[in-house]
Design a protein around this nucleic acid. Structure first.
Lengths: 234, 234
DNA sequence: CGCTGCCTTGAGTTACATCAAACGCGGTGG
DNA sequence: CCACCGCGTTTGATGTAACTCAAGGCAGCG
């Protein structure tokens, strides 16, 4: 299905990638895209496979991870509307995906196949810069993850994951910011077992700095949670 | 000191960055550079500081790390001749370094200040692509580090560090590949204490799959070590 | 009203960090 | 040539965060 115009994007749509282009270029780019719905558990790209499309998440949520040699998933980040993936398609040779991406919510994406994306790079002088910005952002983000998550105790990792996730996926509802995440999803994102995650979360709940129902977490507020948590001397 | 020509680079010099440019562009770029010697412990850039130069390591070795909030260093990678740093100078706004880099050996670098590097981006049409390639490489590397080092047991991290380091910094000598690294440097790179590193290394030595003197490790060969180590059922 | 899947709790185990202490290589000066 | 010194290294004892496994509770759905 060919996308007819930029009008198909939500009004408040923000994307690092598109922001790097002129509005005329955005028009061109969006017109060349195919739109496609996605559903939970669908694998959108697989590391090692030939990178044959560049794509942009329009709605929904995806998980970006890498497969360890022993087969389990090393979570890297969430993908939210506006995020661009499959950059290997245009900037690596041989073009192979380096990460695996799986949808975790209903949603939709815009995509460009190999030929189309390479043509766009030639046609739009700002494409290189726009891609640069996207890659640089990912790099920054990963350095943060490595520096701040990877070599810190489980509790701090979990707290950070909660904050980041709340920022990206939180809906504000009665009593604070609601997050649709199961203990297991949090555990994966914070790189720990479900058991450890449960214990920390329970502890926090009994301290009154968050509340939780099955499959849902509610933080009073971002700054509130951050302060409360730091105040508990770990 | 202005660099006079590309002739000042070693004959066998390889750089992902320069490889992305035409030979005419390389000429232009190198002519615009300043050359500077570096010595151990010298801080070449500091995270958070204003990014005011783009630079290329010509000879020597540097360590790239990030400072955690509690002040200790989170090692990210070695930098070797041909590696480019300070990319934030041209591709981030506001331009701030995101990592700290420290020299660990005598050597030299070529650098371009803020104005010069931005001018080069405008003058050389392939700069964007060349920078892209560099950033994409770093991203790949970081994903590897995250996936393979960060969430694996200490022994596997150390083995990987040895292999990577040998590849980058190893000299081949009598009896195999020699590495000038202290236990402490290895420990930092593999994110563990010196004690743990010592124990693992001693174990391997007593198994006969490597030898070590003070400040030096000798691996029989890359593939040999890799196989031997895997064969020991961890 | 029972079933299924998420969640919780506890007990046992392990890998690794921490700390204290001593060893020995390799340089330096007598 | 020997005595010394300092730093990189080694070893052991101890503590602990987090994983594993087993079992049971409970929410929400049919």
């Amino acid at each position: 299905m060919k996308a007819k115009s930029a009008a198909m994007l939500p009004a408040d749509f923000r994307s690092t990638f598109l922001d790097g282009l002129t509005s005329r270029e955005i028009e061109t780019v969006v017109k060349a895209a195919e739109q496609e719905p996605i559903s939970p558990h669908q694998i959108l790209q697989q590391e090692g496979a030939r990178a044959d499309r560049l794509w942009l998440l329009v709605t929904g949520r995806v998980a970006v991870y890498r497969l360890a040699q022993d087969g389990d998933k090393v979570f890297l980040r969430w993908g939210v509307p506006g995020d661009t993936f499959g950059l290997a398609t245009v900037l690596k040779r041989p073009e192979r995906y380096v990460v695996t991406i799986e949808a975790v919510q209903e949603g939709s994406l815009l995509s460009w196949d190999l030929a189309a994306s390479q043509a766009l790079v030639l046609r739009c002088p700002n494409m290189d810069k726009a891609l640069n910005a996207v890659v640089a952002d990912y790099l920054d983000n990963l350095i943060d993850v490595l520096g701040a998550y990877a070599f810190q105790p489980a509790e701090q990792r979990l707290a950070r994951v909660l904050l980041e996730s709340a920022r990206q996926l939180g809906r504000s509802g009665t009593g604070g910011i609601e997050l649709d995440l199961t203990n297991e999803q949090l555990a994966v994102a914070a790189h720990m077992t479900v058991f450890t995650a449960t214990r920390k979360l329970s502890k926090w709940q009994s301290m009154g700095i968050l509340t939780k129902r099955r499959g849902k977490i509610v933080l009073p507020s971002l700054s509130r949670f951050e302060n409360d948590w730091k105040g508990t001397a770990n």
